[in-house]
């Protein structure tokens, strides 16, 4: 995609703050009119529930016993943060997030390259094929993986019995290591297409003339990859990683279906589910949810500040 010079309105306005022209003011007003409804909807569907969750988290409140509801300040947070169960869930969630995102980034990049290089005739078919796992509902894919590895109904043990460490009696969901391996594998299978699509968009942004210039200068394939392709799509890579990390940190379905948190595979979302939905402890559960939300904010903040991810440039706006 070639970049067309776009007049930078925001910069212009910043330069002339004192005398805002009639036209600029009208544009600004129009901007608010256009964005306003979306802004209000966002407030309603995100800010309100978050505020409500924070409010509820200050109470000891059980759904089946509303009369005993009592304001207890921040003690729910104290209970959560001093409990080993919470920290173990955070540890497992981070482990799953780091491994899935790292593997998906490499795999997704390879798939993006394949799609990028594929013959024009093959490209639509290839994209469809790669997208299929992403189109499957997570619960369905979790069940598919669960039944494939299940000791009594699964086929994995009999198909891969020749591999060392796998036999007819391998109980995949019997211990932490193997359970987490299946959960991670299923997660990777399911969401690699997402990351590869974002990376494909990034690849398309790398100017061809730079590639050709490097080729003329005698750069090898690897050199072109490291010096030209990747630096030019850094923004797309970072956005892809950010989105996937946020997504991976909130993992729920696979754990819920495959292990129900057995063998220490409990993740943070599952903990929130158990307190709020199973125990009906709205207060404690809200505290876990708010903490989960803060983790997600922290991840976004780290990505944006530390790695200087520019969301606008990824869309080719700058």
């Amino acid at each position: 995609m070639t970049t067309t010079p776009v007049p930078d309105i925001a910069a212009e306005q910043a330069e002339v703050p004192a005398s805002v022209s009639e036209r600029a003011r009208a544009e600004r007003r129009l901007g608010w009119w256009l964005a306003g409804p979306a802004f209000v909807v966002m407030l309603l569907v995100t800010a309100y529930p978050i505020a409500q969750a924070f409010y509820e988290s200050l109470f000891q409140y059980r759904l089946t016993d509303p009369e005993a509801r009592e304001f207890i300040g921040l003690s729910n947070y104290g209970v959560v943060l001093t409990d080993g169960v919470w920290w173990s869930a955070v540890g497992v969630t981070v482990l799953i997030t780091v491994i899935t995102v790292a593997v998906e980034a490499v795999l997704g990049f390879a798939l993006a390259l394949v799609m990028h290089r594929a013959l024009r005739a093959l490209r639509p078919l290839l994209r469809t094929v790669i997208l299929v796992p992403y189109a499957i509902i997570t619960v369905v894919s979790a069940f598919a993986w669960f039944y494939a590895f299940d000791i009594s109904t699964g086929f994995v043990n009999s198909w891969f019995g020749w591999l060392p460490g796998i036999s007819a009696d391998t109980n995949w969901f019997g211990e932490f290591g193997t359970s987490v391996t299946v959960i991670i594998a299923s997660e990777i299978w399911k969401t690699t297409p997402f990351i590869s699509l974002l990376l494909l968009a990034g690849l398309a942004q790398v100017p061809d003339d730079l590639q050709e210039a490097a080729k003329v200068d005698g750069a090898t394939w690897w050199q072109r990859m490291y010096k030209v392709t990747i630096p030019n799509m850094k923004a797309a890579v970072m956005v892809a990683l950010l989105f996937r990390t946020l997504d991976a940190f909130r993992i729920f379905d696979n754990v819920f279906i495959m292990t129900q948190g057995a063998n220490n595979t409990e993740v943070v979302s599952f903990l929130a589910y158990r307190q709020t939905i199973s125990r009906l402890e709205i207060g404690l559960g809200s505290a876990v949810s708010v903490l989960l939300f803060l983790c997600v904010v922290l991840i976004s903040f780290t990505f944006i500040k530390l790695f200087k991810v520019d969301l606008a440039s990824a869309r080719g706006e700058r």
Binding site: I151, S152, A168, T170, N171, F173, G174, E175
Partner: peptide, 15 residues
């Protein structure tokens, strides 16, 4: 049996 730690009523029956 090998699948004991995730054996439910149905799995018990099959075994």
């Amino acid at each position: 049996g090998p699948g004991f730690s995730n054996e439910d009523e149905n799995a018990s029956m099959l075994q």
